[in-house]
Computed example of a mutant assay.
Amino acid sequence: MPNTIFLLLSIGPLAMVLAMIASQRVGEANDAYTGEVTGRWVRSSTGTYGPTSHCMMRIRADEGRELTIEVNSRTYQSLGVGDRVVKAPGARWPVRSE
């Protein structure tokens, strides 16, 4: 019985953190904006499984907000500073505006 209580108390906070991360990801996917790429960089780190790269972009939305997002390498290569971008609701990454 004490082991069961300990297990529940230790898993509960972890489940809450995972739920918060999942809801944030859903919110990002439902976000929509148009704007301009104002910066881009690659952040590297070394972890347990070796080096990892994170492609980052800063976007100034037309509404005035500044966004710093992590994108996949294909999106990073296709967009440069000064490019106009649009992100549709449900899309994972922004794309170049036509």
Rank of each mutant, 00 (worst) to 15 (best):
N3F: 15
F6M: 14
L7Y: 10
L7W: 07
L8K: 10
L9S: 04
S10N: 09
L14A: 12
A15P: 03
M16C: 09
V17N: 04
S23P: 00
S23V: 03
V26G: 00
V26K: 11
G27M: 02
G27A: 15
A29P: 01
N30W: 01
A32K: 03
Y33W: 07
T34E: 14
T34K: 05
T34N: 07
G35M: 02
G39T: 03
R40F: 02
R40L: 09
R40H: 11
S44V: 12
T46H: 09
T48G: 03
Y49I: 03
Y49P: 00
Y49F: 15
G50K: 13
G50R: 13
T52K: 15
T52A: 11
S53G: 01
S53N: 15
H54N: 14
C55N: 14
C55G: 00
M56A: 04
M56V: 13
M57Y: 08
M57W: 06
R58C: 04
I59Q: 02
R60Q: 14
R60L: 14
A61M: 07
D62C: 02
E63K: 05
E63C: 03
R65N: 09
T68I: 09
E70V: 03
V71Y: 01
S73H: 10
R74S: 14
S78M: 13
G80L: 04
G80D: 15
G80P: 02
G82K: 04
R84T: 00
R84N: 05
V86W: 02
V86C: 04
K87G: 02
K87H: 06
A91K: 06
R92C: 00
W93L: 08
W93V: 01
S97N: 07
E98Y: 07
